[in-house]
Each structure stands twice: as structure tokens, then as C-alpha cells.
Design a protein around this nucleic acid. Structure first.
Lengths: 309, 309
DNA sequence: GTTGCTCATAAACCCAGCTTATGCCGCCAT
DNA sequence: ATGGCGGCATAAGCTGGGTTTATGAGCAAC
């Protein structure tokens, strides 16, 4: 009760935006870490040195932690500052992916490369590819449309797109394709779930007989799973987005089957655990596609070669 | 030459912060997506409806994309809006991890749980654990210090910390421990590297005879690698941070050996590719540690149980 | 000493985002 | 039909955080 300025919600709940420095400040911090000087970082970002100084200072005040050791001949990160900078880098990287994706979403007539992609690929893979493409060919303007396989095929065939990406079992008619990667559906649980401690693989029938958290019928993921199990997947709940499914699994509601792409980050952070399965064909190809005979050239070729390495 | 406001750098280079909506706007967008109404989202975030309306509108103007379909009885995301929202969610999640980590870094005397952790664990794993802990026990104040194994041990033994986390081959004297996860060093290359296409495992001597991008001698990762290879690791370059090593590998400079934790996200996004190796012991345990005899209780026990699931 | 780098402080300015106050539209229950 | 309610948009006015310019002070190398 010593604090009076708290009327809504319990404890520290509330928008995180007021507790996290804005992107400009985080970017500035990364520049300071890299260049070893406030003024240098300021120059790189096109602001003046006092602006940088004040911004770092207000960030330290906001966080309640000293981030940089200033000296008359440069600035170095404190130990806490190094850790904060690492966490900040993840935010900025996510922002870069957002940026390059959002730029591609904007309909521009001058696009030199028009891409059509399935939702999953557009969401998880494409931003990384576009960043790599921008690094190689900085002035390639890209436009992006996301949709299901049929929509991708339609855009390609009506010459509204130069290159497409689809995931799934079959290639739409009229298109040539190249496999660029493999995706697997994997069984995931919260780290606390009994399956998380298994050492032996799960048998197919065990998976089929256990109620799972699933996407609604008709979703791509659900189709592949049902096909692999023979139409038997038993729902514990059905949810309408991959995000909702992930949240339910993390909260311990039960196991789910999701694309490796969708849960890669959660697995890396150990928020989810993957359970080995045997005897079920849960692999599917990710393919680049283009109209039959029209081999990608120019920017499309550049992007294609990036996706395959 | 049609643009006059361009004096430094080529093309669209420059701080991403001006091209990406700020965290508050992204959080608002997520709330709109979840609640299906601008006003509802505004209420949840504690602002007025016109503020939300104006903010979404200016975000749409900034991105040049319509995000929300407004109707007199609610708002739904457009297709592009759904994609943008997915990308935005990654930024906000990174910001939440930043927030919970930064709060723990602040030295607070009233902390009910004092944690000491190695850098790698503090950077990659701890924010997730702290978020889970906050979800379970919202009013547990946590403080965090990061350092090497010896520093962690010292803080525990001098009763400046209640629970520690270390990675490495041995447990410091005077501490009890529990293995909470396993980490492996893995060989990674850019997707374009020759090794990325290998199907057969790499032999130990092949790894030892190839120049690698390495952390400097004395780093934990380097020690484990040298031990596993018998002190033979041959440097192509030596860099002083994991981040720098990753950047070098992504840019195609050569292969490196890094902790699975450090590259998990890059692998998921296919920015890096892992190369299987055989005959080399690159595994190490991640351990929770505490002073011998003093089994963790209270908040420390809560956190410990989260880390093991 | 002088030059050149570093960072800090102070004062003035500007704009993004906020609130309050209003209006319009469509649905639903009376 | 006719309120009433919930949803969104517009307009006007305020505030504060981040910016710039201008200046000062510490330390190093010449």
C-alpha cells in the first residue's frame, strides 16, 4: 500500500510499451555497443551527440540500470548493459523483419519482383529471405501477396506474380517447382507434460488415440495430420489460429501437432518440447513455384537462389 | 537523383525505427486483433477510443497498407493486417522478454528471489522462465546477476543469491546441482556453404582440420570445443562475441561451432544450417545450483520447477 | 599550450499522441 | 417506429519527450 499510483489491474500488469525503451533508443544502444562511443553512434543514426546522450540517459533512468560506462575517451557497456543489449538485439531484429515484410506488402507498381506465398512461408521464412536479398541487391523493390496454394497459383498464372512459394503435398497444375526446404509437423507439449520426459518414440496409434489441441478442420496443418493418421485425429479443443494453439500448449492444456516452422523459436527457448514420433509421415515439402516453362530470371532468380542457399 | 533528401548511405539504409510503428501501436494492433474492436482494445490499454482510432490510422499511413476493416459493429483484420499482426507479435514478445529481464537486473532490496546465472543462460533462457514465473506468481520480485561459473558460485556461497544456473562440464565446489537441460555445441554454416548440403556426418578429424570461425581462447564455448577435439581447433578468425561469430557465419565467411541455444532461432528461420558431426563429444549440461544442503524453497523452488517443466 | 576527441548541460522548439467533445451509422429491443 | 447502445470518425486544444543549437569541461597526443 505504499504506492498510491495503482488503480487498475494487479501488480505490474499493463502495456509493456511504457516499460521498454522505444526502437530508436534500442537501436542507439546497439550502435553504442558496436562503435564504443555515444557521439559515433549519434553520427551513424543521423542525430546529434546531445540527443544520443540524453536518450541513453533517459533509457537508463527508465530501466533503473546503468548501461554504459562513460569516459572522456569513449563509452563501454556495463555488464548489465551487455545483457540488456543482447535482449535489445532480438527486438531490433524482429523489427527489421517486420520492416522488410511490411514494405513488401505495400502495393507498388514499380516492384521489380512480385512474390506470392502461403501464409506460413510468408510469416516465418520470407522476411529472412527478403533481408538477405536486400543485403545482396539493395535496390530490388519487392511486393508480396499471401494466400493459399490456389491463390498463389492464380497470381502466377495471371502474371500478377513472378515467383511463388507453397507448402503442401501437391503442386498446383500449370506450375513448375523446386523443393527449397522440408517442413515437418512435430508433436509438442509444455515442458511439464508427461510426454516431455519420454525417451522412446511415440507410436502412431498412441498419437491418434490421444486428444490433441488442433487447428480447425480444413486448415493445411490439420489436413496433413489427418491424412497421416488416417482421418483419426481426436480433438481436445479446436482453435482457429496457430498462435492460439501455441498459447494453449504452453499453458499446459495438452499436446498439439504443429509445423516445425511455427514452433522453432519456442523450442529453442525451451518453452515447448518436441516429442519424437515414429510410423507417421508428417513431412511436407516447401516449394518455390513458377509458371511451367518460365524459369525464374533476374530478381526472382536471385531470391530463389537465396532460399536454397 | 530524383530524391534530394539523401546525403548519407545508399538507398533505404537508415534506422528502422522510423519505418516501424512503436511498441504501443503494435500492442494496440494485437489487442484489436484479439478483441475485434478498436474501442475494446483502447479500453484494455487504458486509452480512449479516439486515441486508438488515430493511432491505428497513422500506423496504416506509415506502412501504406490497410490493416483493419472497420464497420459500424466492429473491426476485423484485413489479410495484410493478419500478416502484419503476426510479425508484430514477434516484436512484442521480444519486448516482453526484454522487460522481464530488465526488471530483474534492477537491484532491488526487496527481491524475494535472487538469481545468479551464466551469461548464456541469462541471455537465452532466463527471460522465458521469468515470464512463466510471473504468470504463475505475479508478485514475486526477482533480481538477476550474470557472470561466469565462479561468480555464480561466489554469490551463492556468500548468500547474495538464492539460486544459480551454470553451463559447463563441472559443478563448482560447495554446490549441489540438478541438471535442467542439455546443451550441445553444433556445427553451423550459411545455407550456401558446401557443408550445408552434406548428408553424411562430418568426421571429427575433418572438423579439426578445417579452419573455423571461433570465439577467442578462454571462452566457455571454445574450451568445450578444444577439449572435444583435443586442443586442435584451427581458427579462421577469432571474434570476441557470439553475436559477431553468428554474423560472420551468416555472411558466408565459414563454419563455426556454437551453442544450440545461441543459434536456435537462426536455425528455425533457416538463416543457418546445422551440420551433423560424429565422434565428438560436444554435449554439456545446463545445471541449476545451490549451496550444498540448502535445497531451494519458496520462490526459488517455484522457478526451479519451471525450468524442469 | 593547442588541437581533437570524448561526454554533459541548458534553453528553445516542435510534433506525436493524448483527451474531451461531438456526430454519424447500424443493430436490436421495446 | 423509436430510443438506446456500441462502434468508429473528426476537430480542437494540451502536454511532454526528443530534438537542435550553443556551450563547457575532462583527458590524450602532439
Amino acid at each position: 500500500m505504499s504506492n498510491a499510483d495503482e488503480q487498475t489491474g494487479p501488480a505490474v500488469t499493463g502495456s509493456v510499451a511504457h516499460r521498454v525503451p522505444d526502437l530508436g533508443a534500442l537501436e542507439l544502444l546497439l550502435a553504442v555497443a558496436r562503435l564504443g562511443s555515444l557521439g559515433g553512434a549519434a553520427r551513424e543514426l543521423g542525430i546529434t551527440q546531445p540527443a544520443a546522450s540524453s536518450r541513453i540517459r533517459s533509457m537508463e533512468r527508465q530501466l533503473g540500470v546503468a548501461l554504459v560506462d562513460r569516459s572522456p575517451r569513449g563509452s563501454r557497456l556495463t555488464d548489465a548493459g551487455a545483457l540488456v543489449t543482447d535482449w535489445a538485439r532480438r527486438i531490433v531484429e524482429a523489427a527489421e523483419a517486420f520492416d522488410v515484410g511490411a514494405q513488401a506488402l505495400r502495393d507498388r507498381r514499380d516492384s521489380r519482383l512480385r512474390v506470392a506465398a502461403s501464409m506460413t512461408i510468408a510469416e516465418y521464412l520470407l522476411p529472412g529471405w527478403l533481408l538477405a536479398l536486400r543485403a545482396q541487391r539493395p535496390d530490388t523493390a519487392v511486393s508480396l501477396h499471401a494466400g493459399n496454394s490456389a491463390a498463389v497459383a492464380e497470381r502466377l498464372l495471371s502474371d500478377e506474380a513472378d515467383l511463388g512459394f507453397v507448402e503442401g503435398l501437391s503442386v498446383p497444375a500449370g506450375l513448375d517447382s523446386a523443393v527449397i526446404a522440408h517442413d515437418r509437423l512435430i508433436v509438442v507439449t509444455a515442458p511439464g507434460h508427461a510426454w516431455a520426459r519420454r525417451r522412446r518414440s511415440l507410436a502412431a496409434e498412441e498419437l491418434a488415440s490421444t486428444p490433441l489441441i488442433l487447428r480447425e478442420k480444413g486448415s493445411g496443418t490439420r489436413q496433413v495430420l489427418d491424412a497421416a493418421l488416417g482421418g483419426l485425429a481426436r480433438p481436445l479443443i479446436e482453435l482457429s489460429s496457430t498462435t492460439a494453439v501455441k498459447a494453449a500448449v504452453v499453458s499446459g492444456a495438452g499436446p498439439a501437432v504443429l509445423s516445425e516452422l511455427a514452433v522453432g523459436e519456442e523450442l529453442a527457448m525451451r518453452r515447448l518440447v518436441s516429442v519424437p514420433v515414429e510410423g507417421v509421415a508428417l513431412a511436407r515439402d516447401l516449394r518455390a513455384v513458377w509458371p511451367t516453362g518460365h524459369r525464374p530470371t533476374g530478381p526472382a532468380r536471385d531470391l530463389l537462389s537465396l532460399t536454397r542457399g
